[in-house]
Write a protein that binds this DNA or RNA. Structure first.
Lengths: 212, 212
DNA sequence: CGGAATCTTGACCAAGTTCAAGCGGTGTGG
DNA sequence: CCACACCGCTTGAACTTGGTCAAGATTCCG
């Protein structure tokens, strides 16, 4: 089956696949205020996390201050596992966030389940690479909005927890370009903006065909 | 530890980490001619592979023909594991290539080892994302050449198995831009080109500081 | 109400793409 | 052995997209 013949939906997976493989071991719950650091680059990798409520960004900085957001994590999704003993990224709460925290022990006991999570993360990263590597600004925003929607079960009404700057750093654009792309999608009636953070997807199909 | 204070080397890992975790189960060896398909999008995921000699590209196509190469795999490196039951990418031999092929059984028995591989793949994909998302053409080429060099133990003399088109599709550029960037690096005496496919890295340090 | 973020819009600029032509090595046939 | 065509790579010129800089609009909150 070739890419050309596939509907765009298959590019984006609902978060169930991530949620379903959560580690059943013992864990505690912690609350993080908006903007608070969860772990930093260089920290030992010894926990992994599941978002209960709220949202998280994982990112990296270049020495000149450029930032690349590698992933966002919404309610139900897991993150924090990395190759090696040290984190290579920063993780921060975007809004007030509650996390279930799993210790090293649970991690070792569930390599089977973690493998599924890691492979899902890999698939996401590679899909993201496709978007950032080969699509224009409007296509990137379309793919981003669809992805967010699909990860929440296909809801039409989206509340964006992240700022334009976060989105820009995730998609490899600037805030201005993100803003202009949003405006274009609005003008074409593919989406509607109640306010900057509240997006309604009017024509998911059309949005979809934009990003293939 | 912050990104700004780290030498760029730490961004690139030698392939040992991939090689060392290879699955010790039974396997057969197959030979692929240059350009031959190893698996296609939509194929069932039931094997995984280790490159004995040669090189492999893993990529995806958009409906309009744009191609994103997601990864290259050199001698010693493993690939082919993906989330879900179907491949979402194509894999092809770039040059004449010999592969060790592992069956589904070995895969299930070694989830521990595969987890390490998957996490390494994830780290690579995220590093690649950083390059494609936030660096300019010359920086991308510099990062690419350094990565290739480091994956072969830091050799200075590189034989590129892939074409300019492959590199362009890997870095999210066009062949022309790849060519111009190479020329610029040559003019600055950071690299030397014996011919288009044979690169000598003259100043690894300078190349490194280019891509942070 | 005032002030600070955050977001949007406009005008200009630069990096990269597109289109087109030329170069250089390789392989084939007369 | 040379002529020629082919392929991959390089180079140049015009164009386009997105970035930069600057100014305004909107929202959020004290």
């Amino acid at each position: 089956m070739y890419a050309a013949s596939q509907p765009a939906e298959q590019s984006f997976q609902p978060s169930d696949s991530v949620t379903s493989a959560s580690i059943p071991g013992p864990h505690l719950v912690a609350t993080y205020k908006s903007g608070r650091e969860i772990y930093a680059e260089g920290d030992a990798v010894e926990k992994c996390y599941q978002v209960a409520t709220g949202a998280v960004r994982v990112y990296r900085l270049l020495s000149d201050g450029r930032r690349q957001v590698v992933s966002f994590h919404l309610a139900g999704e897991m993150f924090g596992f990395e190759a090696g003993v040290e984190h290579r990224f920063f993780a921060e709460a975007i809004t007030e966030t509650r996390l279930a925290v799993f210790g090293r022990r649970s991690i070792q006991e569930y390599s089977r389940e973690l493998l599924a999570l890691a492979l899902t993360g890999l698939a996401r990263a590679q899909q993201h690479l496709l978007v950032v590597g080969r699509q224009c600004a409007v296509e990137r925003i379309a793919a981003f909005l669809l992805d967010l929607s699909n990860r929440q079960g296909g809801v039409r009404q989206l509340r964006l927890p992240m700022s334009r700057q976060d989105i820009a750093d995730y998609l490899g654009l600037t805030i201005e370009t993100v803003s202009r792309a949003m405006t274009k999608l609005k003008e074409r009636r593919l989406i509607a903006l109640r306010d900057a953070r509240t997006v309604e997807i009017m024509r998911p199909d059309a949005l979809c065909s934009l990003c293939n």
